[in-house]
Amino acid sequence: MTNRRILLISLVGFLIFGLLLGGKFVYQKQWVDVTILSQSQEIPGVVSAKVESHNGLKEMVVKTNQITNLRQACQILKKVAENVPIRLVDSRNETLERVLGQMQFAVQEGIASGNFTVMAQNLRTQAENEGVNLELEMDSDAIYLILNQDPAQLIEVIERNGQGDFLASEKDMT
């Protein structure tokens, strides 16, 4: 009789544990993802956002389409992400990737020396020489860079202090 009660109590305990675990999974997948998606879609130029797990690490993947105010969008995304690193996905082409690679010298030099006016001037000159439109902003945390070459757009957030809020941007493969 006592063995049956222990068995019954154990089964009920496992059932309740399973329900709670399943409820947590549904909550994370449905409620949190829907909340992130709805809040992020209010940002002009953001198509979608979702939290994904890569190699056991969570990151918020944000697909963009012709974003205009990257600094403001990133500030909102950081609040929505709640300390999860953000990866921006854009519609870059090979020319824009090459130009960004060339600009990295001026960007890193500007960060190291603190001479951001010279950096900005060098970046604008490089963009003009390549026939690319440049939108450049900065705050105390990062440098926000958008390269446009219709219809392609490359966006990059270069953190000044290595906070880890933003991961390297990627090309949209869909």
Rank of each mutant, 00 (worst) to 15 (best):
G131M: 04
W31K: 11
K50I: 00
L8S: 08
R5L: 13
F25V: 14
K79C: 09
M103V: 06
V132P: 07
N83A: 05
D172C: 05
Y144I: 08
G162M: 01
F116P: 01
T64H: 02
V46Y: 00
Y144F: 10
M173V: 12
A168Y: 04
N122Y: 02
S38V: 05
I36M: 14
K29R: 14
F116V: 03
Q102W: 12
L88A: 03
A112E: 13
S10C: 12
A49G: 02
V26H: 06
L70Q: 00
A152D: 10
Q41C: 08
L96W: 02
G162A: 01
M1A: 15
N65R: 09
Y27Q: 05
M138T: 08
Q72W: 10
G162F: 01
R5P: 02
G45V: 00
E94A: 09
Q66R: 04
M119E: 01
Q102I: 09
R5V: 13
I9C: 14
N148D: 14
Q28E: 13
Q66K: 04
S38M: 04
D165W: 12
M173I: 12
D150A: 14
Q126E: 12
A81M: 09
L20Q: 06
V47G: 08
Q108E: 11
R92N: 09
G101I: 01
Q75F: 05
M119N: 02
I9D: 13
N55F: 12
F14C: 12
L57E: 15
I16P: 10
A127S: 12
F17L: 15
L96H: 03
M60F: 04
V51D: 13
C74K: 01
L147I: 06
G162K: 00
E128N: 14
P44H: 06
K29H: 13
F17S: 14
N55S: 15
G56R: 05
